[in-house]
Design a binder for these strands. Structure first.
Length: 562
RNA sequence: UGGGGCGUCGCCAAGUGGUAAGGCAGCGGACUUUGAAUCCGCCAUUCGUAGGUUCGAAUCCUUCCGCCCCAGCCA
């Protein structure tokens, strides 16, 4: 953790400070990150993770738990649990020995339900799902009481017990809280506590055939764990009265719930359900496709945990729905990689350049700095130079405008760390494509500086042809063509905004030899182009595959399009 | 026509009665063996609207306008 900046103040910290001052809670603060294991974590979850674990780190004695809200065995899988654990760890957070599952509390929750029944505030309802919906009323019309609402305690106890032991079919009965069918808050209209589901749970197996609803499990789980501040997203704001009601009825520790706005990012989809669809329908190669906004996708793309933490700190926390510009994220990763990534030269779209006056068999080895951005860093690497090299196709233009600082007929440029070279002749194929450049070099400019002090405006990266290491490089564009992927015509869905050019594969790139030793998981700057990393899935020593994490800022491209 | 939230620069976001922080983006310029990075400037007389209270309001009160969420035996 290098350049940690002061976390800006936000309304949650204000509330916590007040609570600490008033002594509302006996001890230090305690938060938790409570994912449902029904998909992979995405950048939106990172905001919540950084918030919850960050708060615990910042306040003396603070603690943060990781708890899986695993109350729906139909949608949850062990694969997701494993992936989530890996991702939170990767992000850099630690929950000590406090890894919990809502399913740990199934027995306790059952006892709480019994208590509600005994207190006459819960009942077994035989209405069908459709009937329950009808009885619930609408946003503007109050609901009406179920005919089963006034069963006796004894009858409820008996029925609930029989639900638990498996006497009834899925969906035939539910346990409901008895609150107020006319409440303006729909969450208070006798919410369902338990449903019958003869399903095998990934952790509790076949121990249960009734499973608690999220609303019934969540608040109590927080209470059981002694969570002081239950931080969740805005849509749960009007569930808070219900959670408060449960806690009061049962008479247990009362956490304080605080709601904040979830993250939205331009060009990014942030719904697990829809991300799952992208995976299932094959629009991407998997949850860890580098184009996915999942943590595993960003990791594979080359994002660092630090960059994501920095991002989370910078975007702030508030209650207004907002959409962060993707450039904020890009800035965070560039900032981190600029400081730490070793530099190297790589030619993505090679154009052959022959230095005509350079001896045929001669090879020189130039020692160049690996971290030229850091004056004090002395690490170097060796790059070989020879008569035939590759430069970038974009670095040559036959009819170049004055502002084009690169190679053109008759113009002189510097080959980074090597020599000045002047273009004498352009060789084309039958179609008129430029296939080779014939140049001459100035032996006096060895190392990239001329003793006569003459300046060249352009400096190009290059790779010696006979020493080059071949590689495949994958360039990525946003997965969607619209800032808001959900902005669609009637009858369409977000898949109509999928970007057909979200991935571009460059099969024949030429890298400087040092890159053959590239370390998996490490980011490299391909000078003048961007930051790249080995693809953790497809790269092999025989066939290197690099992903472009993010390009360098390119003001020339901007000027050029004007 | 119900309930719950939110409205401060293009995008985020501080500010909590004393006269509008910061980041991203953008725009100038310096420097540069990465058209990168770095540096230096510029970028809200105004806080959704209209009134009111006050010596003084983005902050307090009222009005209106706009946007988001809620009718799963999902979370």
């Amino acid at each position: 953790m290098s350049t940690e900046e002061t976390t800006p103040s936000n309304f949650i910290r204000t509330i916590i400070n007040d609570d600490l001052e008033s002594g509302r809670f006996a001890g230090p603060i305690h938060t938790r990150f409570p994912p449902e294991p029904n998909g992979y974590l995405h950048i939106g979850h990172a905001k919540s993770i950084c918030l919850n674990f960050g708060l615990a780190q910042d306040y003396p004695g603070g603690l943060a738990n990781l708890r899986f809200d695993d109350t729906n065995p139909l949608k949850e899988e062990q694969e997701y649990i494993d992936a989530i654990i890996e991702d939170v760890r990767w992000l850099g957070f630690d929950w000590g020995d406090r890894l919990f599952y809502a399913s740990d509390y199934f027995p306790k929750l059952y006892q709480y339900a019994l208590k509600l029944i005994e207190n006459g505030v819960a009942y077994v309802d035989d209405l069908t799902a459709d009937e329950i919906r009808e009885y619930r009323g609408t946003l503007t019309k109050p609901g009406k009481n179920s005919p089963y609402r006034d069963r006796t305690t004894a009858e409820n106890l008996d029925l609930f017990h029989r639900m638990k032991v498996g006497e009834f079919k899925d969906g035939s009965r539910v346990l409901r809280a008895k609150i107020d069918m006319a409440s303006p808050n729909i969450n208070m209209r006798d919410p369902v506590l338990y449903r019958i589901l003869h399903a095998t749970h990934q952790r509790t197996g076949d121990d249960w055939c009734i499973y608690p609803m999220y609303d019934w499990a969540h608040g109590q789980s927080d209470s059981i764990e002694g969570i002081t501040h239950s931080i969740c997203t805005l849509e749960f704001e009007d569930h808070r009265p219900l959670y408060d009601w449960f806690i009061e009825q049962i008479g247990i520790f009362h956490p304080r719930q605080i709601e904040f706005a979830r993250l939205s990012l331009t060009y990014t989809l942030m719904s697990k359900r829809k991300l799952l669809r992208l995976v299932q329908d094959g629009h991407v190669t998997g949850w860890d496709d580098p184009r996915m906004p999942t943590l595993s996708g960003f990791r594979r793309l080359g994002y660092t945990p630090q960059s994501i933490r920095t991002f989370a700190d910078r975007i702030g926390v508030a209650k207004s729905n907002s959409t962060i510009d993707f450039s904020v994220l890009e800035h965070a990763i560039r900032e981190d990689l600029n400081e730490h990534a070793p530099r190297a030269m790589a030619v993505l779209q090679p154009l052959k350049l022959v230095v005509e006056n350079y001896p045929e068999e001669m090879v020189e080895e130039f020692e160049v700095k690996t971290h030229p951005q850091d004056r004090d860093d002395t690490e170097t690497r060796v790059v070989p130079f020879s008569r035939e090299i590759y430069i970038e196709q974009d670095d040559f233009m036959e009819d170049a405008p004055k502002k084009f600082f690169r190679l053109a007929p008759g113009r002189e440029v510097r080959l980074m760390g090597a020599y000045y070279v002047t273009c004498n002749e352009v060789i084309k194929d039958d179609q008129g494509n430029v296939v080779e450049l014939r140049c001459s070099y100035d032996p006096e400019s060895r190392g990239g500086q001329s003793p006569d002090g003459r300046k060249v405006k352009g400096t190009l990266h290059w790779v010696s042809a006979k020493h080059a290491v071949a590689a495949e490089v994958r360039l990525y564009q946003p997965l969607f063509t619209k800032e808001n992927p959900e902005d669609v015509e009637d009858g369409q869905d977000f898949t109509s905004n999928l970007n057909p050019n979200s991935i571009e594969v460059l099969p024949a790139c030429m890298l400087e030899p040092s890159l053959a030793e590239a370390v998996p998981g490490r980011g490299y700057q391909f000078m003048r182009q961007g930051y790249f990393c080995l693809d953790s899935v497809d790269s092999t020593p025989e066939k290197l595959v690099f992903n472009r994490t993010v390009s360098l800022r390119d003001t020339w491209a901007k000027v050029n399009t004007k």
